[in-house]
Simulated assay, not measured.
Amino acid sequence: MTNTSQPAILVLADGRSFRGFGFGATGTTLGEAVFTTAMTGYQETMTDPSYHRQIVVTTAPQIGNTGWNDEDNESSGGNIWVAGLVIRNLSHRVSNWRAQRSLQEEMESQGIIGIQGVDTRSLVRHLRDQGSVAAGIFSGEAAKRPVEELVEEVNAQESMAGADLSTEVSTDEVYTIPVEGEKKYTVVAYDMGIKMSTPNHFAKRGIETIVVPAGTPFEEIKQYNPDGVFVSNGPGDPATADEAVAIVRDVLKEEVPFFGICFGNQILGRALGLDTFKMKFGHRGINVPVKNHVTGKIDITSQNHGFALAMPTENPGEEFDTDFGAAKVTHTCLNDGAVEGVALSNGLAYSVQYHPESAAGPHDANPLFDQFIDLMSNHSPNNK
């Protein structure tokens, strides 16, 4: 059993600190402190590559109740990608029939450092005022060092703004997720930090997914004769992703059906000429309301992003000019007006900032996968 009585301290770059007790691995971890309002799905969150280099603060008061299993991981190898975990209370027992071990046991085996006993209400209020900030968790002997030294170490780490992280989490080799049942289409998915639920959604709809490394040139993927191209979610600053933007521009020139999620939304936006910016504290949760300005419908969505596209027009839904024809912002967040989706007006390319694969989260946005099927059925290059 992991020792959960060892001293630990969370230190923010602005000098604020929170003491508690360590769990999982012991030592030091650095990252950007962000909070998630999700009430469930901590395993999916922790294994989401989009959280690479981020110390996640949970607003749910107790974590660990459902333990850990080998089925709900969102990374292909089951790796935990969060830099650290900050919680109020750690559940003393696991109460789920699917659990194979406890959260703290999994964190210890993967070398992930956590801190419990933190007043997460006070911490989240601070982050909401200050925005996402650099931070560090120090446990065991590291927690006994002077706080001033720890603050210096936290401030010395690389900023998240300007960080090119997608290549750090992307696959090194091409691999295929086969269909369930009859094969209908082939999609090449660029792994910018892909969540495995996405190709699983494709598989259930008869789509074979060929997952390729982030920087694979468009000319190379032609050998797979794809009916469509997908760009996944992922971590880091989209302003650094010039290579991915160039690839998507090649896809648009060839008029291959395109679908993007999260980081893929920012890449499509940049390919269409839009700018990106770092948000104050981002969107991380599973109950974020988004309005579809094409249909007028409102979806409750799962989100995890710290960067966003700049609004190109005065009002969402208005067309703007691009190198590939007219485009428009299709979705916005009802909480703060952030851009949540863009699309070419001809329908050949679309993307959303949120996560329709719903792992964890509501299923309101699942029809976006069916929209991709409709797009490929009408415009696949293999039909020409």
Rank of each mutant, 00 (worst) to 15 (best):
I247R: 04
V248S: 01
V248A: 02
R249V: 08
R249L: 08
V251Q: 01
V251N: 00
L252A: 09
K253E: 14
K253L: 14
E254I: 08
E255F: 08
P257Q: 07
P257I: 06
F259W: 08
F259Y: 10
I261A: 01
C262W: 05
C262I: 02
F263P: 11
F263K: 11
G264L: 04
G264A: 07
G264Q: 03
N265D: 14
L268R: 06
L268M: 10
L272F: 10
G273E: 08
G273R: 09
L274M: 15
T276A: 10
F277I: 13
F281M: 12
G282N: 02
G282F: 01
R284T: 06
I286Q: 13
V288D: 12
P289N: 08
V290N: 00
V290D: 05
K291R: 14
K291W: 05
K291D: 05
K291I: 12
N292C: 04
T295C: 13
G296Y: 06
I298D: 14
I298L: 10
I300G: 06
I300T: 14
I300Y: 09
T301I: 00
S302W: 09
Q303G: 00
Q303C: 05
Q303T: 09
N304A: 15
H305D: 06
G306F: 08
F307D: 09
F307N: 07
L309F: 09
A310K: 14
M311P: 07
E314H: 11
N315D: 08
N315F: 10
P316I: 04
P316E: 04
E318N: 11
E319G: 08
E319I: 00
F320C: 03
F320S: 04
D321F: 04
D321M: 11
T322G: 11
D323V: 13
F324Y: 14
F324E: 07
